[in-house]
């Protein structure tokens, strides 16, 4: 059972997660079917900036985050931005969408000029997230847990970060037990996705360079 405090934390995190989203007009442009390679590149890079801003606004709402050392806050956000973006875009891709929308989104990525060697692991990740049938609470908590990883480069006070992450992990563990009773490994599988995210993160810089060249 979630304690009252844990339920309140969960509600708060989910509310913050839902409140901060990429602007609608930008999201609508993504669903336009006809676009040139250049238009696509510009839109996707614009969306990346917006995604980071959304991520920062969400993170500011994580209890205790703004009381961390300021440079540690920067280090955590820098270290987790790419992973958080992949998580958020996985949610978008695996959500049930009106007819044809997922195909348009997929087409944008496949025609973007990004090499197949990077696209394949990305879509494999989206597929593995989809298979988990995650609830919104799980997306929100997993994002917070990703951001609060104390082993990011340049984080000085790792203990302070771990102290913020621990309650999130506990709430997620309980939530998994309550919502996925038929899958006792659900929590472990969610954490396994974080490992997959690290791989995507490491490949990301190489992916950007190759994309820019193409």
């Amino acid at each position: 059972e979630l304690s009252q405090e844990q339920q309140a934390l969960l509600n708060y995190i989910v509310e913050a997660y839902n409140k901060h989203r990429v602007p609608q007009d930008m999201a609508k442009k993504l669903l336009q079917e006809h676009f040139s390679a250049e238009e696509n590149f510009l839109l996707l890079t614009e969306m990346a900036t917006s995604h980071v801003q959304v991520l920062v606004e969400f993170t500011k709402n994580i209890p205790g985050f703004q009381s961390l050392d300021h440079e540690d806050q920067i280090a955590l956000l820098k270290g987790s931005a790419v992973e958080a973006m992949f998580l958020r875009s996985a949610e978008v891709f695996t959500k049930k969408r009106p007819q044809g929308q997922t195909e348009v989104l997929e087409e944008r990525i496949r025609k973007s000029g990004i090499s197949e060697e990077f696209i394949t692991p990305m879509f494999n990740f989206y597929k593995s997230i989809g298979e988990l049938q995650m609830r919104q609470e799980e997306h929100a908590l997993l994002t917070a847990i990703t951001i609060l990883s104390s082993d990011r480069p340049y984080v000085k006070d790792q203990q302070a970060v771990e102290q913020l992450q621990e309650p999130m992990l506990e709430v997620l563990w309980k939530f998994c037990k309550l919502q996925h009773p038929q899958d006792p490994q659900h929590f472990a599988r969610l954490l396994g996705r974080l490992t997959e995210l690290r791989t995507l993160n490491h490949q990301h810089a190489e992916m950007l360079e190759s994309w820019r060249m193409s």
Partner: peptide
């Protein structure tokens, strides 16, 4: 890649200081 990291940090610092304009 180092250019991307600097760009990312600048966006983060700006967003941390101010409000994201919805």
């Amino acid at each position: 890649p180092s250019g991307n990291t600097i760009g990312l940090e600048a966006i983060i610092r700006k967003a941390l200081m101010g409000k994201y304009d919805e």
